[in-house]
Design a protein around this nucleic acid. Structure first.
Length: 855
DNA sequence: CTCTCCCT
């Protein structure tokens, strides 16, 4: 309070500026409400659209608030650029330099002093601040700006700050500022706190829907439609145009389409995306000279990060490219999705910043309601290794112990935990280790932090710092056909390198700064000398992405993780026997490698000896129809070497043989009439006669359980041919409990004797109720239908003519003799006059005579 | 046959 007062005494004009900073800004109307909410309560939510002036207005208005009682404010910004700019504007309004009352801290820059009351920081910095001092001493208020973006770090920052407020600092104020209408959930999370809403300030933008004709358009269709929309805009409207496309590829292709269309002479065409150099980006952003207009083809970078003044027409293809982390692969992959409604509105708003504008949307008005209302929060789809490490450092092993708007998903947390455990950063219970604490302190992705700490011990610290900086910052190589080799980038970064010209100077400067910062933190002296060890270093960070060339397929690799990876043959790395991939496109079967380094086989074996396994693999070779045995040295899914094994263990051989048998089918066993009959009779008794205690001898079950019942009978067999000698009857019999052995023949006899005295077979099919087939004459005198299974199941009778042709099928002989026989007799007597056709078949003598006598 | 954005 005192400082503030003295300051105003000396600089009354600053006071004037502060209080009247810009009374036309809408936020001005609600500043008193915000002060009151934080005086009377602990937290509040401010919901104000872009242009309301909240980023500068709110912190300045709170400078004299009594609840701060001399403590300072920290405001989070999602981007360095925004943090620097916000601090700059606020300082300017106070008539000061940055670093006095208002300062900022971002990764590589710090402008704060003892006098600083407002500290604007980027989101990662807050995490470091709160981890370093969980009480946030000297801080009275934490402001989360642009919270609607729901970045991973702001969600984490809020969770930790809430914990600090709830447990350690009952006077700590939290203010969440959000641009969209989704303020209610945050207000609930903060404890049913007030939501203060402000108007925005923007010009109206008229929306025109230009849907694509096809229901499922290809990228080609979208690019063509985009070019048409630009042409339409140029023909019908004046002013600068901003076109939103999902990525650099689409931008390049639409650009070449437009160039072929011969644009009006006064039009300049610029691409704009993150990987472009600062100079190229500036060209797209700077205002058009008088008499000229521009068309900027941009990714989502122009949605919030960069503003282009003077845009009055926006063309929105309605797509965004975003990363989805796959815990199984331990990698992210890029997907192209429809934008959310909030994003589409934000894009449209870009046409109304300086004057009324127009927005062309390349979809139908009806489809707008099918868009997701908001873009998914990053925590749901991100690599959570950094978050899990931070939580462990905070003392939390289960994220659910903290309060979140969206709980970090369990799958990603588990993957993160196991990666961190492999690296020794967490113990078996998920608690942080000394190594983990050192990792977290470095402010790098845990993989890179682990690499750095290990490299220091191998005296490769400075090389590792350069490598980590290269992988943290943007790729310093520009252009489309980049080689993947990280050594080339390291070489170019070394002082006095011939390759320096290939570098994007802005990116190179940042990499150098980052490298220096890391070296300072780790107390590593000396400069990196040469890039020879890059593969070895990368293997520490990405052990799962060590990859081995596939035989006979140049450019194709097998990764330790089990996935495939490839490089085009135009890249010299494609011919290396081993590489480590630092960056891949995330395709599960065959991922494109964007950044990698070669790895020396001897060093690989030396450094990763503890992870290598020697295993005996006995497997079935289906084409050679035999069991083969090898010893292998493996690293994850990679087979480093393989040798034939002379004497594999008998159990393994049997296992492999059974594997082969299961692949080929159980029919390969030496089945015969006896074994098939046993099988079908047991099946019949089990399935149709109620003897459920009998084992299931059906082919599918036998095949599935072969390892249990067949294995003891396979000793000494190594080839399919050897199966012919297997005692299948013995094996099947062994499956059936002993008391049943005799009973089966009684319950389900293989034959039965019929009145003619013949012993005729019963057919049980594949385990169905049995039938017998006999000529009618053989059955004379058989009054009732025969049965099996203690009389439970009748035997179906197939009645044949004297020529053994099927005549009738019946399960009820009594009824046949009484009703059907007289008709059959009439019919057959004419054709077979010499056979007996008695009036009363029940008392007639059965006969086996089939052929007519004589002749 | 060639990756969205951002941060410690």
């Amino acid at each position: 309070m005192l400082n503030r007062y003295r300051f105003l005494w000396y600089f009354p004009s600053a006071f004037y500026k502060t209080q009247r900073m810009n009374p036309t800004l809408p936020i001005h109307d609600v500043l008193d409400d915000i002060c009151t909410a934080l005086e009377t309560g602990l937290s509040a939510v401010v919901q104000a659209p872009p242009g309301a002036g909240k980023t500068t207005g709110v912190p300045l208005a709170l400078l004299s608030a009594s609840f701060l009682s001399g403590k300072k404010m920290v405001m989070l910004e999602p981007r360095r650029l925004a943090a620097r700019a916000a601090a700059g504007r606020m300082a300017e309004m106070l008539g000061e330099k940055v670093g006095e009352t208002v300062g900022y801290r971002i990764r590589l820059e710090k402008k704060v002093s003892a006098a600083t009351r407002i500290e604007v920081v980027t989101e990662g910095i807050l995490t470091r601040m709160i981890q370093g001092d969980p009480e946030l001493s000297g801080i009275g208020l934490v402001i989360f700006d642009e919270f609607h973006e729901r970045n991973l770090n702001s969600d984490l920052g809020l969770a930790l700050t809430l914990e600090c407020q709830g447990v350690l600092r009952e006077d700590l104020r939290i203010l969440v500022m959000s641009a969209t209408l989704d303020a209610e959930p945050v207000a609930r999370l903060l404890g049913e706190v007030p939501v203060i809403t402000s108007e925005g300030r923007a010009f109206p933008v008229a929306t025109h829907y230009l849907p694509l004709r096809k229901p499922t358009p290809t990228p080609w269709d979208i690019e063509a439609a985009c070019a048409r929309a630009v042409a339409k805009g140029l023909a019908e409207e004046e002013g600068d145009m901003l076109v939103f496309l999902p990525g650099a590829g689409e931008i390049r292709r639409v650009e070449s389409r437009l160039r072929q269309m011969a644009l009006p002479e006064q039009i300049d065409l610029y691409p704009l995306f993150g990987a472009l150099s600062k100079e190229a980006q500036d060209k797209a952003i700077k205002p058009s000279p008088a008499g000229r207009h521009k068309v900027v083809l941009a990714t989502a970078i122009a949605e919030t990060s960069l503003t282009i003044d003077g845009v009055t027409l926006v063309v929105d293809a309605g797509l965004m490219r975003t990363s989805r982390f796959s815990p199984g692969a331990g990698m992210g992959r890029l997907v192209t999705l429809p934008v959310s409604k909030a994003s589409a509105d934000q894009r449209r708003g870009r046409a109304g910043r300086t004057a009324p504008g127009i927005c062309y949307r390349l979809w139908s008005e009806g489809r707008t309601s099918t868009l997701a209302p908001f873009t998914a929060p990053e925590v749901l789809h991100a690599d959570l290794a950094p978050l899990v490490l931070e939580l462990a450092l905070w003392g939390v092993t289960d994220p659910a112990e903290l309060t979140w708007l969206d709980l970090p998903p369990e799958g990603s947390c588990q993957q993160a935990r196991s990666l961190l455990q492999d690296m020794g950063g967490l113990d078996a219970k998920g608690r942080i280790t000394a190594h983990g604490k050192a990792m977290a302190r470095l402010g790098l992705h845990p993989r890179l932090a682990h690499m750095l700490l290990c490299a220091k011990e191998k005296k490769l610290g400075s090389e590792a710092c350069l490598l980590a900086a290269l992988l943290t910052e943007r790729d310093p190589f520009t252009g489309n056909r980049k080689e993947a080799d990280l050594r080339l980038r390291m070489e170019a970064m070394l002082p006095g390198s011939r390759r320096e010209a290939a570098l994007n100077p802005g990116a190179a400067a940042r990499i150098k700064e980052t490298m220096r910062q890391l070296a300072t933190r780790l107390q590593i002296k000396g400069n990196p000398k040469e890039p020879r060890h890059s593969g070895r270093l990368l293997a520490l960070a990405f052990p799962d992405r060590i990859a081995m060339a596939r035989k006979g397929r140049p450019g194709h690799f097998q990764m330790a993780s089990g996935s495939g990876a490839f490089l085009y043959e135009t890249d010299p790395l494609a011919f290396e026997p081993f590489i480590v991939a630092a960056d891949l496109d995330g395709n599960r079967q065959n991922a494109r490698v964007y950044l990698a380094a070669p790895l020396d086989e001897e060093l690989l074996k030396a450094d990763h000896a503890h992870r290598m396994r020697r295993e005996e693999v006995v497997s079935w070779n289906d084409s050679k129809e035999k069991v083969e045995a090898v010893t292998r040295h493996t690293l994850g899914a990679m087979i480093l070497s393989e040798k034939r094994l002379a004497k594999p263990s008998p159990d393994a051989v049997t296992g492999a043989l059974i594997q082969g048998l299961q692949a080929r089918g159980i029919g390969l066993l030496p089945w015969n009439k006896t074994t098939r009959s046993l099988q079908s009779r047991v099946l019949f008794l089990r399935n149709h006669a109620g003897f459920e205690d009998l084992p299931d001898l059906s082919d599918p079950t036998l095949q599935e359980t072969a390892a249990q019942w067949l294995a003891p009978f396979l000793i000494g067999v190594t080839r399919m041919g050897g199966l012919a000698k297997v005692d299948l009857a013995g094996a099947l019999t062994a499956l059936i409990p002993y008391p049943w052995h005799r009973k089966i023949d009684t319950l389900a006899p293989t034959h039965m004797t019929i009145p003619s005295g013949t012993h005729i077979p019963l057919d049980y099919g594949n385990g169905e109720p049995p039938f017998l087939a006999a000529r009618i004459q053989q059955l004379f005198g058989l009054t009732d239908t025969p049965t099996v299974a203690e009389g439970r199941v009748p035997v179906t009778c197939h009645l044949l003519s004297p020529a053994s042709r099927p005549m009738q099928v019946t399960k009820d002989l009594k009824s046949f003799w009484a009703n059907t026989y007289p008709e059959v007799k009439k019919e057959l007597k004419a054709r077979y006059p010499k056979h007996p056709w008695p009036e009363d078949p029940l008392t007639a003598v059965a006969t086996n005579r089939a052929k007519r006598k004589g002749k």
